[in-house]
Design a protein around this nucleic acid. Sequence first.
DNA 1: ACCGGAGCCTGTTAGC
DNA 2: TGCTAACAGGCTCCGG
Length: 278
Amino acid sequence: MPELPEVETYVRALEPLLLGKTILMAEVRWPRTIAAPDAARFTDLVRGRRFSSFDRRGKYMLLGLDSGETLVVHLRMTGELRLLSPTQPDAGAAPTPIDKHTHVLFDLDTNEQLRYRDTRKFGRIWLVEDSATVVGNLGPEPLDADFVPQTLAQTLAGRKASIKALLLNQTVLAGVGNIYADEALFHAGIDPRRAGGSLALEETKRLHLALRDVLLAGIEAQGSSVQNYAPPTGAMGGFQEQFQVFRRSGEPCFTCGTPVSRTVLSQRSTHFCPACQS
DNA sequence: ACCGGAGCCTGTTAGC
DNA sequence: TGCTAACAGGCTCCGG
């Protein structure tokens, strides 16, 4: 579900909520959520560890612990992290029930509880000494200064897959998903069905700029709130207000009035304006 | 090296 | 209303 701007929003929100707090105990209810090590060793290793750093790579959250290890979290489609306030029995407040989609729980030394919830169970959590073992194969960060049009052009050269499929490929570029791929291609005026290798240098430059623009606008708006996604603070992201084509099939293009088209590329819904994008 | 499709999961919505 | 199929912001694995 979340893409780069949503994950960035998440990490920024989590840092002040978790920094310096210690995990007293962890419980894993759906073992497959823990990708590495096995669930028993995972709970053993996180016990007593303190959150010490917060970072992001692509769509992965990197939560550093004082042991030097990193909790790597990928929310995939429907994952979410929630920090629950301590319950106060004196006030008569009952603890929030653990629903069936909550798969991992962390009790903190503040009496708060961090819960990983994931309806579709696609999300994964790793505990690793070196985060590169998880994120080492990702492509460049689109917002880094060293991501320049020439980098993108080199990666796309000779590729026969659609430009849409290539933007979703995390080894090509890290952090772009279905929303921001469609939106960036619209802003660049490029048909998502075009082969990646068919883009002229001018088009690649436009796409490079459009990618950075939509991702920055997404972060500025604190992400897009569609269906399942909401940032951990409870406040909703607002980038969905700026969608030009995403999930607007049949509705008029804001630029030219032509109905927005929908097709399927790389097994994903793809939205574009057949007049503005060529 | 690259590409497309099946599979992983559950819930919601569109269509008959 | 009830059933079924399609769809959902992602990724891995596998065969060609």
